[in-house]
C-alpha cells in the first residue's frame, strides 16, 4: 500500500532519518515505535506530505508522493494527531463534515456515514453540536478519528493519538480503536512510544532507533528473536514499568 525506497530526511546538519526501505501492507495495522527522536513521526509526516524526503521516494498505492500528487492522495488518507487537531471555530459535526462538504459529497450519504462512525467510535450524539473546547480529551480524539474516516480512506495515519489522554480513557479508546480497525478492515499506520499499545494493536511492529530500523516483525518476533540487545531492553524496560 505504502512503499518507502531509500527514504531519508535531514534538517540542515541534523539527520532525522537515515535511508530506509519499508513497506506498509494493506488491511494490516503497522506500528512505528521507538524512543523520542528515533524518526517514527518523521516517517508519518513524510507519508502525509508535511515533509519532503531528502533522498529516495515514497509510493502510495503505486503513485509517487510529490507536491503535485499530494492533494489528491491526502484525500485518500486519514490523519489523526496527538491533540486531535480539531479546528476551534467549528463544532464537532462541522469539523467532521468540513472536507466532505468542501468536496460536495452527497449529504444523506455523509449523514449516514457520520451516524455509523459515531456509533462505532462510541461518540455521544449530543457532543456533535459542541465546540472542541466543550469536549473532553477522549471525545476530541473520537471526533478526530471520525473526521479521518469519513471519506473511507485507504490508509489511516495515527500520530500518538492516545498519548495526551489519562490512563482510563486511554484503555477504553485502545479497545475501541482495535474494534474499529477490525470492523473496517482498515490499513493503519500508528506511531506510539508504548510497547503495550503496539503489542495490542499492531499486526507488525517496526522498532526504530536514531533514525534507523532496528527490527521489524510481530510482537512475538521481537520478544522471542530480538535482533540485538536494544530490542529486548526496549521491551523489558516497558514491562518493568508496568510491574513496579
Amino acid at each position: 500500500m505504502i512503499e518507502l525506497q531509500g527514504v531519508s530526511k535531514q534538517f540542515g546538519a541534523l539527520v532525522a532519518l537515515n535511508p530506509i526501505d519499508l513497506v506498509f501492507e494493506a488491511r494490516k495495522t503497522s506500528v512505528l515505535i521507538g524512543p523520542s527522536g528515533c524518526g517514527k513521526s518523521t516517517i508519518l509526516r513524510l507519508i502525509v506530505g508535511l515533509l519532503e524526503p531528502s533522498t529516495g521516494r515514497l509510493r502510495f498505492d503505486g503513485t509517487i508522493i510529490s507536491p503535485e500528487t499530494i492533494l489528491q492522495l491526502r484525500r485518500r488518507m486519514g490523519y489523526v494527531i496527538q491533540e486531535g487537531g480539531l479546528f476551534p471555530h467549528l463544532t464537532a459535526r462541522q469539523n467532521i463534515l468540513l472536507l466532505p462538504t468542501h468536496l460536495g459529497r452527497p449529504r444523506e450519504e455523509m449523514q449516514a456515514r457520520l451516524v455509523e462512525l459515531s456509533e462505532l467510535a462510541r461518540l455521544p450524539r449530543d457532543s456533535l453540536s459542541r465546540y472542541p473546547v466543550e469536549l473532553s480529551g477522549g471525545q476530541r480524539q473520537r471526533v478526530s478519528l471520525i473526521r479521518a474516516l469519513m471519506l473511507k480512506p485507504d490508509v489511516l495515519l495515527l500520530d500518538e493519538p492516545l498519548a495526551a489522554l489519562d490512563p482510563m480513557v486511554r484503555a477504553s479508546l485502545q479497545t475501541e480503536l482495535k474494534a474499529v480497525f477490525q470492523h473496517l478492515n482498515q490499513t493503519v499506520v500508528l506511531v506510539t512510544h508504548s510497547m503495550a499499545e503496539a503489542a495490542y494493536l499492531g499486526d507488525r511492529i517496526v522498532l526504530l532507533r536514531e533514525g534507523g530500523i532496528v527490527q521489524a516483525g510481530t510482537f512475538g518476533d521481537l520478544r522471542d528473536r530480538p535482533a540485538d540487545g536494544f530490542v529486548s531492553e526496549f521491551i523489558n524496560a516497558q514491562r518493568r514499568l508496568v510491574v513496579s
Binding site: L50, L71, R74, M77, I81, G85, L86, F87, P88, R147
Partner: peptide, 12 residues
Amino acid sequence: PLRESAAALGLE
C-alpha cells in the same frame, strides 16, 4: 499542529 491538520486534511 492546526495549520498542519488543515493541510493534511486535503484542503487546497
